[in-house]
Amino acid sequence: MRIEVLPIVLGALPASVWAVDYVSASEAEALMFPQADEFATVNLRLDNAQLQEVGKRAGLPARSAQWGVRVARRASSPLGYVVVDNVIGKFELITYAVAVGTDGAIRQIEILSYRESHGGEVRLPAWRKQFVGKTVAGPLRVGDDIANISGATLSCTHVTDGVRRIVAVLQVAHEAGALP
């Protein structure tokens, strides 16, 4: 696993031009880890064995070997991680951010951009709260511990699958010592 740490000035993150952006990536991470005084990017590169392990734990393919993870710190102590990702809803991309504590439990998810004509209710706090405190041990599945939104089944399913994949990636990377 190759790791690069790149400190990024939060203010340098570009504002998106999407009309359906609800919160920017930098706003999301500040919202999710308000006590953090520093965010740094760790670029993970998973090897084949780790990819297989992610697939096994998440129950779906890891999709990519490379994952950018923002590590939130306070006074140099790691608080957790933020991963910003895209999944396809029904026709269009949904951009969302997942905040996970160093204990592997989900702290929060935020929908950054939603572009579908239907199913914007995945942005509602009540739906997103269902993820809080859950780990890769899950189940983190629509129709199980995550309730569906009628008319937005694909959006709900794909965001939930994406979250499950991310917590698996973080856990595998954490166990490999690639994340603090």
């Binding site: 990024i8 340098a12 993150l13 570009p14 998106s16 920017s24 990536a25 990017t41 999709r63 990519s64 490379q66 994952w67 950018g68 993870v69 923002r70 991963v83 910003v84 990702d85 895209n86 999944v87 396809i88 991309l93 951009t95």
Partner: peptide, 10 residues
């Protein structure tokens, strides 16, 4: 965005 998982995204 600088750390959105572009390569991993569909």
């Amino acid at each position: 965005t600088p750390y959105t998982n572009t390569e991993a995204a569909p």
